[in-house]
Lab assay of single mutants.
Amino acid sequence: MTTFKLIINGKTLKGEITIEAVDAAEAEKIFKQYANDNGIDGEWTYDDATKTDTVTE
C-alpha cells in the first residue's frame, strides 16, 4: 500500500485527506467519490512525485 493525499481547494470546503491505496488509480477513484459526496466539482491535478491529487473549484 502507498500513501496518497488529496488537497481540497473548494469554495466552501478546504483541507486535505490522506489514504492508503494500492495505486494512483485506486486513490483517484476514492478521492473523486469523496469529492462527489461532498459536492466538490472542480479542476483535478495529480503530482506523481508527491502522490498528491489536488481539486480546485
Rank of each mutant, 00 (worst) to 15 (best):
M1V: 07
M1R: 13
M1N: 05
M1E: 03
M1S: 09
M1H: 08
M1A: 04
T2L: 14
T2R: 13
T2F: 14
T2Y: 14
T2A: 06
T2E: 05
T2D: 03
T3H: 07
T3F: 12
T3R: 12
T3Q: 11
T3Y: 10
T3N: 03
T3A: 07
F4N: 10
F4Y: 11
F4H: 08
F4P: 11
F4D: 13
F4Q: 11
F4L: 02
K5V: 12
K5S: 03
K5R: 10
K5Q: 02
K5F: 13
K5C: 15
K5W: 11
K5T: 12
K5M: 07
L6Y: 12
L6S: 01
L6F: 15
L6V: 06
L6T: 01
L6G: 01
L6E: 04
I7K: 03
I7W: 04
I7T: 01
I7L: 03
I8H: 00
I8E: 01
I8L: 07
I8N: 00
I8D: 00
I8Q: 00
N9F: 11
N9P: 02
N9R: 11
N9E: 04
N9G: 02
N9Y: 13
G10C: 15
G10I: 13
G10E: 01
G10M: 13
G10Q: 03
G10P: 01
G10T: 14
K11P: 08
K11I: 14
K11N: 11
K11A: 09
K11G: 09
K11R: 11
T12G: 07
T12E: 09
T12F: 14
T12Q: 09
T12N: 10
T12H: 13
T12R: 08
T12D: 10
L13C: 15
L13I: 14
L13Q: 05
L13Y: 14
L13A: 04
L13S: 05
L13E: 04
L13F: 14
L13V: 09
K14P: 04
K14A: 05
K14M: 08
K14F: 10
K14I: 12
K14S: 07
K14V: 10
G15T: 14
G15F: 15
G15I: 15
G15M: 15
G15K: 12
G15D: 07
E16V: 13
E16T: 13
E16L: 10
E16M: 13
E16P: 02
E16S: 10
E16R: 07
I17M: 06
I17L: 11
I17G: 00
I17K: 01
I17Q: 01
I17R: 00
I17P: 00
I17T: 00
T18S: 06
T18N: 03
T18A: 03
T18H: 07
T18K: 03
T18C: 15
T18F: 12
I19R: 01
I19N: 00
I19S: 00
I19L: 06
I19K: 00
I19H: 00
I19T: 02
I19V: 09
I19P: 00
E20A: 06
E20T: 11
A21H: 03
A21Q: 06
A21W: 14
A21M: 04
A21T: 03
A21I: 12
A21S: 02
A21E: 02
A21P: 01
A21L: 09
V22D: 02
V22Q: 10
V22P: 07
V22H: 11
V22T: 09
V22G: 03
V22A: 09
D23E: 02
D23W: 14
D23N: 12
D23L: 05
D23H: 04
A24W: 15
A24V: 08
A24Q: 11
A24L: 13
A24I: 12
A24K: 13
A24D: 01
A25I: 09
A25K: 09
A25V: 12
A25W: 10
E26A: 11
E26P: 00
E26N: 03
E26H: 08
E26K: 01
E26W: 08
A27F: 07
A27S: 00
A27C: 13
A27G: 00
A27N: 00
A27W: 06
A27K: 02
A27R: 01
A27V: 08
E28V: 10
E28Q: 13
E28N: 08
E28I: 13
E28Y: 14
E28P: 00
E28C: 15
K29Y: 05
K29R: 13
K29V: 04
K29I: 08
K29G: 04
K29M: 09
K29P: 00
K29F: 10
I30L: 06
I30Q: 02
I30H: 02
I30N: 01
F31P: 00
F31C: 08
F31E: 00
F31W: 07
F31V: 01
K32P: 01
K32F: 03
K32N: 06
K32R: 14
K32G: 03
K32E: 02
Q33G: 02
Q33N: 04
Q33F: 04
Q33P: 00
Q33E: 07
Q33V: 05
Q33K: 12
Q33I: 07
Q33D: 05
Y34N: 00
Y34W: 15
Y34M: 08
Y34S: 01
A35D: 05
A35W: 10
A35V: 11
N36I: 14
N36S: 12
N36P: 01
D37H: 05
D37V: 06
D37R: 04
D37T: 05
N38P: 02
N38L: 15
N38C: 15
N38A: 10
N38W: 15
N38Y: 13
G39H: 07
G39F: 10
G39E: 04
G39Q: 04
G39L: 06
G39K: 03
I40K: 01
I40M: 02
I40E: 02
I40P: 00
I40Q: 01
I40S: 02
D41N: 13
D41V: 14
D41S: 12
D41Q: 12
D41H: 12
D41W: 14
D41L: 11
D41R: 11
G42R: 03
G42A: 05
G42H: 02
G42F: 11
G42M: 08
G42T: 04
E43P: 04
E43F: 12
E43T: 11
E43I: 13
E43H: 09
W44R: 01
W44A: 02
W44H: 01
W44N: 02
W44T: 03
W44L: 02
T45A: 07
T45D: 08
T45N: 07
T45W: 11
T45H: 11
T45S: 11
Y46I: 06
Y46K: 03
Y46C: 14
Y46P: 02
Y46M: 04
D47S: 08
D47M: 09
D47R: 04
D47H: 06
D47Y: 09
D47A: 08
D48I: 12
D48Q: 09
D48A: 13
A49T: 10
A49N: 08
A49Y: 09
A49F: 10
A49L: 12
A49Q: 09
T50G: 07
T50H: 07
T50L: 04
T50P: 03
T50F: 06
T50I: 05
T50R: 05
T50D: 03
K51C: 14
K51A: 07
K51P: 05
T52A: 06
T52M: 05
T52I: 08
T52V: 06
T52D: 04
T52L: 03
D53M: 15
D53W: 15
D53L: 15
D53C: 15
D53T: 15
D53H: 15
D53E: 15
D53P: 09
D53I: 15
D53A: 15
T54L: 07
T54E: 04
T54R: 06
T54N: 04
T54I: 12
T54Q: 05
T54W: 08
T54H: 06
V55L: 11
V55E: 05
V55T: 04
V55G: 07
V55A: 07
V55Y: 06
V55N: 05
V55Q: 05
V55M: 08
T56G: 07
T56S: 03
T56A: 08
T56D: 03
E57C: 10
E57V: 12
E57D: 06
E57W: 03
E57K: 04
E57R: 02
